[in-house]
Computed example of a mutant assay.
Amino acid sequence: MAATFDPTLDCADAPLLAAFWKTALGHVDEPPPVPFATREEWLAQFDLPDDDSADDGAWLCDPDGVGPRLSILQVPEPKTAENRLHIDVRVPGHGGPGERWAGIRAESERLVKAGGSVLDEFDGHHIVMADPEGNEVCVAAASA
């Protein structure tokens, strides 16, 4: 059996990044693990510092259960360097190159409205962006 993986983003503002990534990926807030009714109840089982709360993290999932989960955890230290791993957001890649590029541009514009920023464009291929805290994300067409 192959291992599964859940990417985790460290951040300064978990609710801000959660809102961006829900928009980018179409994910939703993941329900707390069974048998817990809330994230607060789930977190209470761990011996966490008194100043930790459920607001210090976000757990997102694909509503269809297909894509990986995404965890977003607030940390005290700032981001100090370029990420060595980034997330690619793939948009449908149907049609000719012009149509695929139009889809990539439309998605990047949607993510700018959600708080992202464009860092670089590789005309016809992909757009390098940053989420609201500077984590790199590329927007490209899905493989045919």
Rank of each mutant, 00 (worst) to 15 (best):
D51F: 13
R69S: 04
E82S: 07
G116D: 11
C11I: 08
T80C: 07
S108W: 14
P63K: 03
I127D: 11
D52H: 15
V139R: 02
E136G: 08
W59V: 03
A144S: 01
D6V: 13
L73D: 02
C138K: 02
G103D: 10
L17H: 03
G95K: 10
A19G: 11
G134C: 11
E121C: 11
R110L: 08
E107C: 15
K113N: 14
T80L: 13
D56I: 00
N83T: 04
N135D: 03
P35R: 10
I104W: 08
P7I: 06
N135S: 06
S71K: 06
E77H: 15
G103H: 04
A130I: 01
H126I: 12
P78S: 08
V91N: 08
L16F: 07
C11Y: 08
F5N: 06
L60R: 03
V34C: 01
I72K: 11
W101P: 15
F46Y: 13
R69I: 00
R69V: 01
I104H: 12
G124S: 04
H86Y: 01
E99F: 07
D120N: 15
I127G: 12
G96T: 14
R100C: 08
D50Y: 00
H125C: 07
R105T: 15
P35L: 07
P33F: 08
R100D: 05
G57S: 13
P35I: 05
G96E: 15
N135K: 00
G103F: 06
P78L: 05
T8G: 14
L70I: 02
E82H: 12
E107K: 15
M1G: 15
R69F: 02
V34P: 05
E136P: 00
G116C: 11
H126D: 07
L70E: 04
F46I: 04
G93N: 13
E99Y: 09
A18Y: 01
L43Y: 05
A140V: 11
A19H: 10
M1E: 14
T4I: 10
G103T: 08
S53A: 00
A44W: 01
P76F: 06
D56G: 07
D123S: 12
D13I: 02
R105V: 15
P49H: 01
L73R: 07
E99W: 12
M1Y: 14
A12E: 09
E41K: 02
A141E: 05
S108G: 14
W42I: 00
E30H: 10
P78R: 08
R84C: 03
D88R: 09
E133V: 06
T80E: 14
E82L: 10
E40N: 06
D52I: 15
D50I: 01
D62G: 12
R39P: 00
P68M: 02
V139P: 07
I127H: 13
Q74H: 11
V139T: 04
V128H: 13
H126Q: 11
G103R: 07
Q74T: 13
N135T: 01
A2K: 14
W59C: 05
K79N: 04
A106S: 14
D10C: 04
V66D: 06
A114M: 13
C11W: 09
A106H: 14
W21S: 02
C61F: 02
